[in-house]
Design a protein around this nucleic acid. Structure first.
Lengths: 261, 261
DNA sequence: CGACTTGTAAAAATCCTGTGAAAGCAGGTA
DNA sequence: TACCTGCTTTCACAGGATTTTTACAAGTCG
C-alpha cells in the first residue's frame, strides 16, 4: 500500500556524535526524528504519535527500568529499541521481557540501527492495522480512510477506489500544489507515461461528485502548467446552501505535538 | 499480564548442542518446538501455524536469502529470528529489510534467544484480546464465540469453521471496510496468493446462510476494488418478516443506502 | 494570434465480483 | 483398508463496474 512510509522516531541519547550521524540518515530516508538528551515525560512521548523510540538507558539514570516499563506499558504500539554499551545477558533479557523490542550494543553502525528500528515498527504496525488517524475534515467533507470513502454530511460521495485515493492524497496536503507526475506516481504507483490524461479525468470525476453533494464549496483548484491544489473554499454568494452554518473557515491544520515545541 | 500462551516455535539449525539446550528451556517454558537440521518447504512451515522461527541461514546454503524472503512474504505475522556466527552489517541490514525481525550472533545465551523470540512474537497476541465479552449482537444476529456459531433468533446458522471465523472477523469491526488481503491474512493465517478467490467464495456462502435465516437484513456489503464491510441494515419494505419462515419475497437488494434519494 | 494545456464526453479496454460446479482434502465409519 | 461425507479450494464464465484511451472543445499564456 502506498500509505505511511514515513516513520516518526524519537531518540533519547546524549551521545551527540551518534545522534547526529543517525539524524542525517533518517532524514535522508524521509523519517521524522526528534532528539532528547535526557528523559522526557512519558506523556509527551504519547502526544508525539511515534512509531519508534531509540533510547540509551544510561541517560535515564536510576529510573531507567521503571521508565522503560512505563513507556512500553503506555504505548503498546510503539517500537522500542535500546542502544547502549556494556550490558549483560540478564539485563538484555530483563529489558526484552519488559516490553522492549530490540537491544543493540554500542558502538553500532547507524545503518543497522535504522534497519532494526524499521523492523520493529514494521512489526508493530502490522499488529494493529486499524488505528488509522481519525477522519479528516475539510470544508463540508469528511474523509474516512477506514471506509475508503468520503462523506458530505452523512451522505457518501460514492467514490471508487482510485477516486478516493486521489482525493485522499490531495487532502493530505491541503494548500499544496501537487504536480501531475507526482500525483500519478503516488496514486498509481508507477511513473506516468507522457501524454497520459488519467489524472485530469479523475479530477473531473471528483469535482463532479464534490459539486453534487457539496455545492457552495470549491475544493480542487487547477494550477495551469503544474497540477492541482486541494483547498476547501466557501464560494461567495451562496453561504445559505451549506447544510451546516459556515462558522469555521480554516479546517484546523492539525497542530502536531511532534513538530511543535 | 503477559499472555503466557504457548508459543509454537520452529528451529532450523544443525548445531545440535545449541538446539538441545534451547529445546530444554523452551520446553520448560511450555513452548512447542520442532527442530529441523535443514531447510524444509515453506508450505510445511505454513501448515505448522507457527508463532516464531529461529534459523541459522548457513544450513540453507545458497538459497538462504531467497528462502527467508519467501517465508517472510508468506507469513507476515511470523516472528523470524536469524541466529548465526560471523555476519557483516550489510548482511544484517539486508536481512532485516527483507522482513526478518531480529538477528543475533552465535554464540549466544539461550535465555537471550528465548527472550528475543518472545519479543518478536509478542505483538500478535497483544493485539487480540482473545477473551470476548458477551455474545456479539448485530441486527438479528447473535455471534457466540464460545460456540463457534452464529444464531438468528434461536436457530443456528450452521456455519463451518472458516465461515464462522470470517463472520466473526467482519463483525468485530462493524462499519469498517476490510481489504481482501487483510481478511485472508487474518482468517487463513498467511498471505493471500494473487488471484485467490477464497474470500469471495466464503462471503457468498455466508450471505446465503444469512439471507436464508435472516431475510430482510443485509449484513455484508461489497466495496468494489477493495473488500467487504459488515454493517447490519434493515432492508426497506419488509420489517414485518423478522423471525417468520422464509417467504418467497425477493427483497429489493439495496445497493447502497445512499445511492437512492 | 498560435502553441500549448485543460475540461468534457463517450467509446473501448480492462478489471472485479457473483456464481455454479468440479476437484481436492480430511475426518469419520464400516 | 476402502468408502462416505462434508468442508475447502480451485476453476471458468457472465455480467457489471471501473479505468483507460481517444477525440474534440474550451481555456491560458506569451
Amino acid at each position: 500500500m502506498n500509505q505511511q512510509q514515513t516513520i516518526r522516531l524519537a531518540v533519547i541519547d546524549d551521545d551527540s556524535g551518534f545522534v547526529t550521524v543517525l539524524a542525517k540518515r533518517t532524514e535522508a530516508a524521509g523519517w521524522q526524528q526528534r532528539t532528547f538528551a535526557g528523559g522526557i515525560p512519558p506523556e509527551e512521548l504519547v502526544a508525539m504519535k511515534l512509531n519508534a523510540l531509540l533510547v540509551d538507558p544510561t541517560v535515564l539514570g536510576e529510573e531507567a527500568w521503571a521508565y522503560l516499563e512505563r513507556i512500553c506499558g503506555m504505548l503498546p504500539d510503539l517500537g522500542v529499541v535500546v542502544c547502549t554499551s556494556r550490558s549483560t545477558v540478564a539485563q538484555r533479557v530483563r529489558g526484552l521481557r519488559l516490553g522492549i523490542d530490540d537491544w543493540i550494543t554500542k558502538p553500532c553502525h547507524p545503518e543497522e540501527a535504522i534497519a532494526r528500528l524499521e523492523a520493529v515498527s514494521r512489526r508493530r504496525r502490522r499488529a494493529r492495522p486499524q488505528v488509522e488517524a481519525g477522519p479528516v475534515v475539510a470544508g463540508e467533507l469528511e474523509i474516512r480512510s477506514d471506509r475508503f470513502q468520503a462523506f458530505a454530511g452523512e451522505v457518501s460521495l460514492d467514490l471508487t477506489r482510485r477516486e478516493f485515493e486521489l482525493l485522499q492524497l490531495l487532502a493530505d496536503s491541503p494548500g499544496q500544489v501537487l504536480e501531475r507526475e507526482a500525483i500519478y506516481q503516488r496514486v498509481w504507483g508507477y511513473a506516468m507515461a507522457h501524454g497520459d490524461r488519467s489524472v485530469d479525468v479523475f479530477i473531473r470525476k471528483l469535482r463532479q461528485k464534490l459539486e453534487k453533494l457539496s455545492p457552495g464549496w470549491s475544493y480542487i483548484h487547477t494550477h495551469f502548467g503544474v497540477g492541482y491544489r486541494f483547498d476547501p473554499e466557501l464560494l461567495a454568494g451562496d453561504a445559505a446552501l451549506a447544510t451546516s452554518p459556515p462558522a469555521d473557515v480554516e479546517p484546523a491544520r492539525a497542530t502536531d505535538a511532534f513538530t511543535a515545541a
